[in-house]
Design a protein around this nucleic acid. Sequence first.
RNA 1: GGUCCGGUAGCUCAGCUGGAUAGAGCAUCAGCCUUCUAAGCUGAGGGUCAUGCGUUCGAAUCGCAUCCGGAUCACCA
Length: 596
Amino acid sequence: MQFSITSMSLVQQIRQAGIEAVKALYNQDIQPDQLTVNETKPEFDGDYTIVMFSLTKFTRQKPEESGKTVGDWLTGHHPDIFKKYNVVKGFLNLSISDPYYVSFLQSSLTKNTVPQVNGKKVMVEFASPNTNKPLHLGHLRNIFLGAAISNILEANGYEVIKANLVNDRGIHICKSMVAWLHYGNDVTPESSGIKGDHLVGDYYVKFNDVYKKQMEELIHSGKSKEEAEKEASILKEAQEMLLKWEQDDQETRKLWAKMNGWVYKGFEETYRRMGVSFDKMYYESETYLLGKEIVEEGLKKDIFFKKPDGSVWIDLTKEGLDEKLLLRADGTSVYMTQDLGTAQLKYDDYHIDQSIYVIGDEQNYHMKVLKLILQKLGKPYADGIEHLSYGMVELPGGRMKSREGTVVDADDLMDEMIQTAAKHTEELGKVKDFSGEELEKLYEVLGMGATKFYLLRVNPKRKMVFNPEESIDFHGFTGPFVQYTYARIRSILRKEEIQTNRPISHALLPLEKAIIIQSEKYEQALSAACIEMDPSIIANYAFETAQIFNSFYTEYSVINAESDEKKSLRLQLCHATAMAISDSMGLLGITAPERM
RNA sequence: GGUCCGGUAGCUCAGCUGGAUAGAGCAUCAGCCUUCUAAGCUGAGGGUCAUGCGUUCGAAUCGCAUCCGGAUCACCA
């Protein structure tokens, strides 16, 4: 059987050949997952290793013997792929032929990189901010994750709809509104020069200050803490305002629309700087009443039940969960009611095959229940619901606490990272010929690259520590390191023309081979990142690619290579690496600069 | 208490569909810029993979138990 170079990864091809060998030699049919193929450890001779231990039941030979037998067969029947082999204990170490590597490299350079569409439509919901305060570090992780996974899905052939469900109503925004009415003196973003989301956030803080003071006074006058919490007049005002809002009081609605408008303008500016955009905005003020029909439906189907007080529940004790409230006794919605409705709305709007929610892991239980309920209702979209759950971002001192003022503001952080990028760039002085505009652009690319990489390099489900000192380090496992590698390559490629198909007959050096193997692993990383919903796989891949290239770069010269042939080969290696880096960084929403 | 997630080098993290002597980055120490960008490279030290038992030719990886940390189990969102 001839292998098509573009359709299978090297490992897959080796595995396939191994299966063939077992069939031919032992007349046994084995499945791909029964054959372990690893990269050979550097201390042994070879490139890839087939582990023979698990095959003893098929070969009825000692691993060492069957290793030899299979090794002979492979080198005999596929001399184009397998150059030689050796067997150590039960490990069959295979050396891949250099021409085979070179053909891999050259075909990858001319390959068309447009993803093959798979016809599936997926919605990714992320960001989902409240409108009472500006975005913070936690939102950054959420948004970068959402944007990255959207890119990854697209690169895997999905049609992606990026959605943002804005929590624009509720008691929290009323708090900002009340405080602004009392203490704002009609201040606006324009009159104060303060970004809209920050201005509204300031009044949310003001509300809490006043609330706290009023509570203290009440406690001082003899009330209990619980009483004080409920009776503080400013809280009552906020509650009244929420009520008025729900009764569609025009004045309240006007103020609400005005202040939310400020916030949206501020958010848009932040999104723009992050380089993210959304295809669809949902607003809770428009969706919070949805879901009641679904509750009716569930009652009719006897999947939900009504308690004597009129409240509606679902019993999930058989599934090992609890009873879950779906509608209050007074007929008003709870969070879950809305989410049921929104899930339906998303499906009605786009007929999506999958719906991914980028939400923190504190809502794991909620998301599990949401999916389960929709499954029980037999909704066609239920199985497609996926929770991309991520852990909290903590500071070295522990969790961010607004009361202690340790919340890291998104805008501030991005500013700092960009300033740091500027500082480093100036110190190094490599781009002194850049115009002011070009410099601004570069600082932004580097600062944002550092920030995104720092937040995306960790497996999402893990909670992570944001160390401010570490994050502004641009060395090592960082975005700028990878970006720098790209700039180095581009510097070479600007100087030399590249021929993509020049025949290469000389033996590959280990580092040359390593580059080909690494660039060949891109597809694997891309698909793993999609399946696992984990952009950190891509970040790690990009870093390893850069690492390998830098070792090669210091060891060998490209432009002054030993021969024209080597020069040609190395230019191709540069090109392949540049593509792997810019593609993988692109998936993370990071630009790789031409120079830095 | 139930459920879920995590515990790998001083710190931050990879590795987890079982494979050879467990890897990076930071930090520490020692080297490398008259040659393609030193935001780089090379090397050294640093580990009871939380603990115990089990499955296996083989366990950081799988199973059970225990300990530690976190989240969640609201007529909150």
